[in-house]
């Protein structure tokens, strides 16, 4: 049986979750029910042969690639990069240009859980009315360190999406992240 994530109705509902997640950084959004990991569901919703995708940690299997109708790209060039969040950053994503900042990559990270982690972070920025806290579980710290560097010259930068079995949490390039001791 083909999973629902490849159906237009699922992708429409998932897209609305993504819109809400990016509109309200730090908020955990639960995706519609499927048999796939949220990261794959998100890719099914946003990616096709007219975009580009990199999978440096080999999280996708052959049938995923076939259904996405897309060929693998290097992480330095890809519009979407899917990674294991527990591993350290080992590439430099596309940050876009001053004239075309939308070419800055979307990084989809898989995590054990979106909350309950040991490190706490405070978020402020567009979409956040009052500063909120997040504590993603199993996130390698290099992601936020490198992110600060990547996003240091707005409008250039990358947009993160943390994913786990429970749902998604978005961190657009405008969100300020501060670690709380």
């Amino acid at each position: 049986m083909i999973d629902v994530i490849w159906q237009p109705e699922f992708q429409q509902a998932t897209f609305r979750c993504l819109v809400d997640a990016y509109s309200r950084p730090g908020q955990i959004n639960v995706l519609p029910v499927s048999n796939s990991h949220s990261a794959i569901a998100v890719l099914a919703t946003l990616v096709d042969g007219e975009s580009s995708l990199s999978d440096p940690h080999q999280l996708l299997d052959n049938s995923d690639w076939l259904r996405l109708q897309i060929k693998s790209a290097a992480p330095e060039q890809a519009a979407f990069i899917v990674c294991e969040g527990s591993r350290a950053v080992d590439f430099e994503p596309n940050l876009g240009t001053l004239a075309s900042p939308e070419h800055g990559a979307t990084l989809v990270l898989t995590l054990d859980a979106l909350s309950g982690g040991d490190s706490h972070y405070q978020l402020t920025g567009p979409g956040i009315q009052h500063a909120i806290q997040i504590a993603p579980q199993g996130l390698n710290k290099s992601w936020f360190t490198r992110r600060r560097h990547w996003n240091s010259a707005f409008p250039l930068g990358v947009d993160l999406l943390l994913t786990s079995a429970e749902g998604i949490l978005a961190l657009p390039r405008t969100t300020l992240i501060k670690e709380i001791d």
């Binding site: 990016y22 979409g127 405008t174």
Partner: peptide, 11 residues
Amino acid sequence: RRSVIKAICIP
């Protein structure tokens, strides 16, 4: 949809 997400990320 891809464009909308980038539009939100770059207000």
